[in-house]
Protein backbone atom coordinates (compact mmCIF):
# COMPACT_ATOMS: atom_id res chain seq x y z
CA UNK A 1 0.00 0.00 0.00
CA UNK A 2 1.63 3.18 -1.15
CA UNK A 3 -1.23 5.43 -0.04
CA UNK A 4 -0.18 8.33 2.12
CA UNK A 5 -2.04 8.54 5.42
CA UNK A 6 -4.30 11.56 5.96
CA UNK A 7 -3.00 13.87 8.70
CA UNK A 8 -4.21 13.48 12.28
CA UNK A 9 -6.45 16.15 13.82
CA UNK A 10 -7.37 16.72 17.46
CA UNK A 11 -11.05 17.49 18.05
CA UNK A 12 -12.50 19.90 20.64
CA UNK A 13 -16.24 20.18 21.27
CA UNK A 14 -18.26 22.83 23.10
CA UNK A 15 -21.07 20.91 24.78
CA UNK A 16 -23.37 23.90 25.10
CA UNK A 17 -23.21 27.67 25.24
CA UNK A 18 -21.36 28.86 28.31
CA UNK A 19 -18.91 25.94 28.41
CA UNK A 20 -15.35 25.65 27.14
CA UNK A 21 -14.39 23.53 24.18
CA UNK A 22 -13.11 20.23 25.53
CA UNK A 23 -10.79 17.74 23.86
CA UNK A 24 -12.75 14.63 22.83
CA UNK A 25 -10.35 12.64 20.67
CA UNK A 26 -8.71 12.64 17.29
CA UNK A 27 -9.38 11.62 13.71
CA UNK A 28 -7.81 11.57 10.25
CA UNK A 29 -8.93 13.85 7.44
CA UNK A 30 -7.53 15.05 4.13
CA UNK A 31 -8.02 18.73 5.02
CA UNK A 32 -9.49 21.07 7.63
CA UNK A 33 -13.03 21.14 6.21
CA UNK A 34 -13.21 17.38 6.07
CA UNK A 35 -11.90 17.20 9.63
CA UNK A 36 -14.86 19.29 10.85
CA UNK A 37 -17.33 17.08 8.97
CA UNK A 38 -15.76 13.90 10.25
CA UNK A 39 -15.72 15.33 13.77
CA UNK A 40 -19.44 15.98 13.52
CA UNK A 41 -20.11 12.39 12.43
CA UNK A 42 -17.74 10.73 14.89
CA UNK A 43 -18.10 12.86 18.02
CA UNK A 44 -21.53 14.55 17.94
CA UNK A 45 -24.07 11.95 16.83
CA UNK A 46 -26.24 12.66 19.89
CA UNK A 47 -26.27 16.44 20.29
CA UNK A 48 -22.99 16.40 22.21
CA UNK A 49 -21.97 19.76 20.84
CA UNK A 50 -22.87 23.18 19.51
CA UNK A 51 -19.40 24.04 18.22
CA UNK A 52 -16.37 22.08 17.02
CA UNK A 53 -12.70 23.03 16.77
CA UNK A 54 -10.21 20.89 14.91
CA UNK A 55 -6.46 21.40 14.84
CA UNK A 56 -3.68 19.42 13.19
CA UNK A 57 -2.05 17.31 15.91
CA UNK A 58 1.42 18.29 14.69
CA UNK A 59 0.57 21.96 15.33
CA UNK A 60 0.23 21.42 19.09
CA UNK A 61 3.08 22.29 21.41
CA UNK A 62 2.87 20.52 24.76
CA UNK A 63 4.69 20.64 28.05
CA UNK A 64 6.71 17.65 29.18
CA UNK A 65 4.44 14.83 30.38
CA UNK A 66 6.25 14.37 33.66
CA UNK A 67 4.16 15.54 36.59
CA UNK A 68 7.30 16.33 38.60
CA UNK A 69 8.40 18.62 35.80
CA UNK A 70 10.16 21.81 37.00
CA UNK A 71 7.79 23.75 34.71
CA UNK A 72 5.16 23.52 37.43
CA UNK A 73 7.56 24.08 40.34
CA UNK A 74 6.82 27.82 40.69
CA UNK A 75 3.26 27.12 41.85
CA UNK A 76 4.16 24.24 44.13
CA UNK A 77 5.41 26.19 47.15
CA UNK A 78 3.07 29.17 47.15
CA UNK A 79 0.35 28.13 49.55
CA UNK A 80 -0.41 31.80 50.23
CA UNK A 81 -2.11 31.93 46.81
CA UNK A 82 -5.00 29.88 48.23
CA UNK A 83 -7.76 31.42 50.37
CA UNK A 84 -7.45 28.62 52.93
CA UNK A 85 -3.97 29.91 53.86
CA UNK A 86 -5.54 32.75 55.86
CA UNK A 87 -7.15 32.23 59.26
CA UNK A 88 -10.15 34.46 59.83
CA UNK A 89 -12.29 34.29 63.02
CA UNK A 90 -15.52 32.33 62.56
CA UNK A 91 -17.71 35.25 63.60
CA UNK A 92 -16.56 37.48 60.75
CA UNK A 93 -19.42 37.26 58.19
CA UNK A 94 -19.35 37.01 54.39
CA UNK A 95 -15.67 36.08 54.18
Amino acid sequence: MSEREWPLYEVFVRGKRGLNHVHVGSLHAADDDMAVRHARDVYTRRNEGVSIWVVRSDAITASSPDEKDPLFAPSGDKVYRHPTFYTIPDDVPHM
Binding site: M1, E3, E5, G25, S26, L27, H28, D41, V42
Partner: peptide, 18 residues
Protein backbone atom coordinates in the same frame (compact mmCIF):
# COMPACT_ATOMS: atom_id res chain seq x y z
CA UNK B 1 -17.94 5.42 15.40
CA UNK B 2 -16.83 3.08 18.18
CA UNK B 3 -14.17 1.66 15.90
CA UNK B 4 -12.92 5.18 15.23
CA UNK B 5 -12.81 6.16 18.94
CA UNK B 6 -10.73 3.06 19.58
CA UNK B 7 -8.38 3.51 16.61
CA UNK B 8 -7.85 7.05 17.88
CA UNK B 9 -6.95 5.68 21.35
CA UNK B 10 -4.67 3.06 19.81
CA UNK B 11 -2.81 5.67 17.79
CA UNK B 12 -1.85 7.52 20.98
CA UNK B 13 0.28 4.43 21.71
CA UNK B 14 2.30 4.98 18.55
CA UNK B 15 0.44 2.66 16.18
CA UNK B 16 -0.42 4.18 12.80
CA UNK B 17 -3.90 3.95 11.31
CA UNK B 18 -2.63 2.57 8.00
Amino acid sequence: GHGLYLYSACETLGASRG
